[in-house]
Design a protein around this nucleic acid. Structure first.
Ligand code: FES
Ligand code: FES
Lengths: 153, 153
DNA sequence: CCAAATCCGACCTTTTTGGTCGGAATTAGA
DNA sequence: TCTAATTCCGACCAAAAAGGTCGGATTTGG
């Protein structure tokens, strides 16, 4: 259905949270989970994935926790999503075994590939620090409301 | 995982096929299915969905089949996808009951909403007739510059 | 030593997706 | 009129993915 996974969403939220207190110490998974009402163990697993990909660093032991590995301005939403959900491929032909029976006759994967590129570019233009702005200052006037979903019927 | 469903892919292929023989007669689901090695009944159900949404017209009885309801140049990939998979919403918060527990504290759905708009625009810039010719004809408008993060304020 | 925390992998449940089946209604043509 | 071809429609099923949980090992600061 072309939607982001909840894990990726959680990861984005957590990374943004870490970015805001980047210069402070590390932050435990439990604390982040409680702040945003995310299942603790699930968030922990997501964060561990991000550690493995090198986006975060973890400090074990008491008073430990997670922290950003790089500057928030250099980390993009696409990196976080890719680390959690795997490579972003809009075309559904890419199963694990790569055996799309339609591949020889499929006529839409090429134009769709271009769309894929556009999405990646869009996601890459969103840095973690730019996510920070949104929440730090509560928007007093909701003038720029985003409306995309059309009336279905 | 942010990927298109196979049904949507099948639908795109079928619609494109119909577009190529737009001026010829109708085309049976079985014929299309065989051409592209798609399960017949599954394709039929997809086509029926498109009929219900008004993108296709169907002719019952012997020698019947499906045909495009409108000019191929006026139908976009986004319409086909939306008809099959429902409204395109990248944020995972939008379940059927709309009960995202993170909604009050979520800090990423707004910037992600902008990304969503970009995707919709990209999908809307791909018409069915442009799928028809594989001649690498890049859509001249709407796809040149992508800028989302830089809301200057 | 002990408590707090990450780490890690296995496991389960729910939801979504892809695919199938059988039969009713409709239509063109013999 | 009769029949074959075809759309139509809803229910059903199986596989996969997503979301979430658990228990234990390991590390670290006090
Ligand atoms: S369906 Fe796999 S190539 Fe398009
Ligand atoms: S997770 Fe639902 S609002 Fe972001």
């Amino acid at each position: 259905m072309l939607k982001l996974s909840k894990k990726a969403d959680y990861g984005l939220i957590a990374v943004r949270h870490l970015a805001m207190r980047h210069l402070a110490g590390a932050c435990s998974a439990k604390e982040i989970a409680r702040t945003y009402a995310i299942p603790t163990e699930l968030l922990a697993k997501i964060l561990q994935k991000l550690v493995k990909k090198g986006l975060l660093v973890s400090q074990q032991g008491a008073e430990g926790g997670y922290a950003l590995a790089r500057d928030p301005a250099t980390v993009t939403a696409f990196e976080v999503i890719k680390a959690i959900d795997g490579p972003l491929l809009i075309t559904s032909c890419v199963t694990a075994h790569g055996d799309c029976s339609q591949a020889p006759t499929c006529t839409v994967k090429e134009p769709l590939g271009k769309v894929n590129e556009i999405i990646v570019k869009a996601l890459n233009s969103v840095t973690i620090s730019s996510l920070g702005d949104e929440g730090a200052e509560p928007p007093p006037s909701t003038s720029g409301l985003i409306q995309i979903g059309g009336a279905p019927q």
